[in-house]
């Protein structure tokens, strides 16, 4: 630490070594950076950096491997959980996680998502749900809300014509292969703490080999939603959370 610079001040925060020094490309106010941080904090705290392999998606977090200081693979769009399956099956003693957005996990990768959880792959799947395609410029996502205006639903999402928000996490919680399914958020410090706990538990559950851990993170997208970061928090609380209520959907059974 640069104690000479901070002389006389108390050090209250240190970036984990599991996060690289690379400047993150995420928009100001975006939840990705927070999720990256707590995920990497957990890996550092558990001391499993040398035993962890992550899989990045296609979407805004496509460059996650630039920021996460662990061995990583960058998967094709939608296929992160299949790639993670391949990794875990040949390295069963390692910790494996996938990190995907809503378009990746719940549109193009729906088949892989359901079957990975249905097989109970012993991995952690992290699902960032911000209801929009951020990277390609704000198109409708499978999780976009009814009436939500996006660049491909300029008159608002009409469920009658283009379907309802896909509550894939609810669906996955019904599968016997799922061990722990929870929906968290990062819009308040308390929510961040809860998310971190969920991530920590999920890595610890991998030692038990009981099934898939799945964490949805309801997040925001200031650029895609065309709002200030502060307004996105309000929108998230008032519009997103009623559709995607926070909490555990499936809690581990002790047996």
């Amino acid at each position: 630490m640069e104690e000479n610079v901070l002389e006389g001040l108390e050090c209250v925060y240190v970036k984990p070594d599991t996060l690289t020094d690379k400047y993150q490309h995420y928009c100001p106010g975006c939840g990705h950076g927070v999720v990256h941080k707590v995920l990497m904090e957990v890996i550092e705290e558990l001391g499993i950096q040398d035993k962890t392999i992550g899989v990045a998606p296609v979407g805004c977090s496509v460059f996650a491997y630039n920021y996460m200081n662990v061995d990583m693979q960058e998967a094709a769009h939608g296929r992160a959980s299949a790639v993670a399956t391949g990794v875990k099956r040949v390295l069963p003693d390692k910790y494996v996680y996938s990190y995907q957005g809503d378009g990746d996990l719940a549109a193009i990768g729906t088949g892989e998502t359901i079957h990975t959880v249905n097989r109970g792959e012993n991995i952690l799947m992290i699902f960032i749900n911000n209801g929009i395609y951020g990277m390609t410029g704000g198109q409708m996502a499978p999780t976009s809300l009814p009436g939500q205006v996006t660049s491909t639903t300029p008159y608002g999402r009409d469920p009658k014509k283009i379907g309802y928000p896909l509550k894939i996490t609810d669906l996955l919680a019904n599968l016997p292969g799922a061990y722990y399914v929870t929906r968290q958020a990062v819009h308040t410090p308390n929510a961040v703490r809860k998310l971190k706990k969920a991530i920590k538990n999920s890595f610890e559950y991998q030692l038990l080999d009981r099934g898939t851990c799945f964490i949805e993170v309801v997040s925001n997208c200031p650029s895609g939603w065309k709002m200030t970061p502060v307004d996105t928090i309000k929108y998230l609380e008032e519009e997103m959370l009623p559709q995607y209520p926070l909490g555990d959907l499936k809690v581990p059974q002790n047996n």
Partner: peptide, 17 residues
């Protein structure tokens, strides 16, 4: 696997490991 799409991506992951 559930499809050939999944199979080849599992191959990707395992080969990458």
């Amino acid at each position: 696997a559930e499809s050939e799409v999944a199979s080849i991506n599992m191959v990707f992951g395992a080969a990458g490991a």
